[in-house]
């Protein structure tokens, strides 16, 4: 790969870094009591919780670091942190 001039880069490159590998605990989105409020997606520091066509939220486990903020904040208590199995 040729180096850029002056150490610049175009968008999209950070996606090469799969931060999901950092995870110890994993948020399990149960979609039982979920009200589709979207707070989980709003508070995720990774921005990796994506609204599906059915309006339920699903995290992109390639990037989810397992911080647990979504589970802590979920008003319906519908996200459970479970031990990551590797």
């Amino acid at each position: 790969m040729a180096l850029s001039v002056g150490c610049t880069a175009k968008p999209g490159k950070s996606r090469g870094n799969r931060t999901g590998a950092w995870r110890v605990f994993k948020p399990a989105f149960k979609h039982n009591k979920c009200t589709k409020c979207g707070l989980c997606a709003m508070v995720c520091p990774e921005g990796c919780i994506i609204e599906q066509e059915d309006e339920f939220m699903i995290p992109d486990y390639d990037y989810c670091k397992g911080c647990g903020l979504c589970a802590e904040e979920c008003p319906a208590e519908d996200i459970e942190m479970v031990k990551e199995e590797k």
Binding site: G6, C7, T8, A9
Partner: peptide, 9 residues
């Protein structure tokens, strides 16, 4: 044409 300038190496 967004570009990031001054990244760290």
């Amino acid at each position: 044409d967004p570009i990031s300038f001054g990244m760290f190496a």
